[in-house]
Structures are given as structure tokens and as C-alpha cells.
Design a protein around this nucleic acid. Structure first.
Length: 265
DNA sequence: CGGCATGTTGCGCA
DNA sequence: TTGCGCAACATGCC
């Protein structure tokens, strides 16, 4: 599920589900996904606090709690938040449950995660996972001069875009799609990009994020139909009909079109 | 059964 | 010392 657009959708839902609420109980069903790993300590850091706001940077979510507390969450590959009735039966893959109240209303918000690559960090300060993130392309925009300075090395443009300290939230799908939109071969070393290329990448990222966000916010979660090239190696390029190829970059499968994505060298 | 998966970290080696 | 590639993490699904 989770790249920037998915996490943005999760943030919007969490805002609705937690606005003005107090955490009246918390339950950790799996110490593996939480920090501190001691379940009682994790629960104690949350209970009794009010949820002041939920924000997002890249693929990370942050609940700001009264008293300076924080719950910082990453969805990994398969994490998700949902809302449930108070005392709902345990969900499949449920790892953490947070019981909320506002006035006489009671309900729960649950963290579910099959694969358990996600993390929930309860802390009194922003953890390094949060502070080390670069700017968020949706919230902060893409700063072309800053991005250019991150592209001075031999590392491929695609690996650079996926570096969370360069741009927070760009994952394998976004990087793959945006480079196709920008007509740039993902293998191109960053330092070979022309001045205009970086601007094209910035615009392509914005368009791709907006497009995926639009596809998800409507109730139809047919997210896969939205991709131009991700997961489509072997199929014809939707722009020029040349057969899409795949290559592994930074350990991740990357689809691209050898016909219309220019390789800079 | 084998292969692949939207993410991150950490280790071994050059 | 730095940087890179790759395995590992744990599980579901096709």
C-alpha cells in the first residue's frame, strides 16, 4: 500500500478519526512493531493523552499528543489504520488498538499489519526516523535547485529520488512513474541530467502524486489501473508502443520505456 | 512450489 | 573511511 499518496490518505482518515479525542486506553498485541518494545511502556506513553493533531512527512505519520507526546508511525509494506467500534473483536493482523473518547462517544482506531515491516514509535520527542527526512514533495513542494544539488553524483536519478533524506515519500512506484512521465531513463546518473531535466522531474512528481491521490480518494481502490509503467514490463509503452523493459536499481525492479525515456550518459 | 512484493536497515566487502 | 550491493526482516498472494 504505502507510498506518499497512500500515507496522505491514511493521514486524512486519521485526522477525522482522532479530532478532539482523548486516548482512554491502548493495547499492544505485538511488541515486535512498537518502540519502546516493552508493551506496558508503549501503552503508558499513550494513555490519558489528547490527540492534538496528526501530520505526515513522507511515508511517516505523526500523532502529536498533549504533554508533548508523539506517536510516530510507518506503514512498512502492509500496514494500515482503520476505525472500529469500541470493543470490536480482534481484527486479522491487528497489532495495536487505541481506544478513543470524546464526550460520551467511544471508538477505537486500530493498526493492522500482516507483514510487520511497519513501526509505531511512542516518544516524547521526534525520533531520528522523523527528523532525518528530507522535504515532502506534496507538503513542501519540490525545490529544483536543492534537488539538483542532490544529483551531482554518479548515483542513478531513480535511486536518488527514492532516498528519503532527499525527498521524503518517493518510493518505487512514484519514482518509476514520475521518470516515465518526465521521459528520463531511470538509470541515468544524476550528474548527467540537464538543467531542464530536473524541472521536468519535479513537475512529473507533482503530477504523479496528484494523479495517484485522485485515484485513491474516490471510493474505487483500483489503484493498479492508474500506473503507466509500474509492473508493466513486457507490455507496450502507453506513449510510444515500444515494449517496456525492466531493470533492477537500488535493489528494486524498475520498469521503463527504452523508446521514449532518454538515457543521459 | 517458486517467485515476487508499494519499505528500511545493517552487514560484509571492495 | 566510505560507499555499494545485497540479504534480511515476515508474510501474503499469484
Amino acid at each position: 500500500m504505502p507510498e506518499l499518496p497512500d500515507v496522505e490518505i491514511a493521514a486524512r482518515a486519521l485526522r477525522r478519526w482522532t479530532a478532539g479525542a482523548r486516548i482512554v486506553g491502548a493495547r499492544c498485541l505485538d511488541g515486535y512493531v512498537v518502540r519502546p518494545t516493552s508493551r506496558p511502556a508503549f501503552v503508558r506513553a499513550l494513555e490519558g493523552r489528547r490527540v492534538l493533531k496528526v501530520d505526515r512527512k513522507g511515508k511517516w505519520l505523526r500523532w502529536l499528543l498533549s504533554g508533548g507526546g508523539r506517536l510516530v508511525s510507518h506503514l512498512g509494506m502492509t500496514g494500515e489504520w482503520d476505525r472500529a467500534a469500541a470493543r470490536a473483536p480482534l481484527g486479522r493482523f491487528e497489532r495495536v488498538r487505541i481506544d478513543l473518547s470524546r464526550g460520551t462517544r467511544r471508538w477505537s482506531v486500530r493498526y493492522l499489519d500482516a507483514r510487520r515491516f511497519g513501526r509505531l514509535i511512542a516518544a516524547s520527542d521526534d525520533p531520528p526516523e522523523w527528523t532525518s527526512l528530507g522535504p515532502d514533495p506534496l507538503a513542501d513542494g519540490v525545490d529544483v535547485p536543492r534537488l539538483s544539488s542532490s544529483l551531482r553524483g554518479p548515483r542513478s536519478i531513480k535511486e536518488t529520488l527514492m532516498d528519503q533524506s532527499v525527498l521524503a515519500g518517493v518510493g518505487n512506484i512514484l519514482a518509476t512513474e514520475a521518470l516515465w512521465v518526465a521521459r528520463i531513463d531511470p538509470r541515468s546518473p544524476g550528474r548527467t541530467l540537464r538543467p531542464g531535466d530536473v524541472g521536468a522531474v519535479a513537475r512529473a512528481l507533482r503530477r504523479t502524486i496528484a494523479r495517484e491521490l485522485g485515484a485513491r480518494s474516490e471510493a474505487a481502490p483500483a489503484a493498479e489501473d492508474v500506473f503507466f509503467v509500474y509492473g508493466r514490463a513486457g507490455a507496450p509503452c502507453p506513449r510510444c508502443d515500444v515494449r517496456l523493459e525492466k531493470v533492477v536499481l537500488g535493489g528494486r525492479t524498475t520498469a521503463y520505456c527504452p523508446g521514449c525515456q532518454v538515457l543521459r550518459e
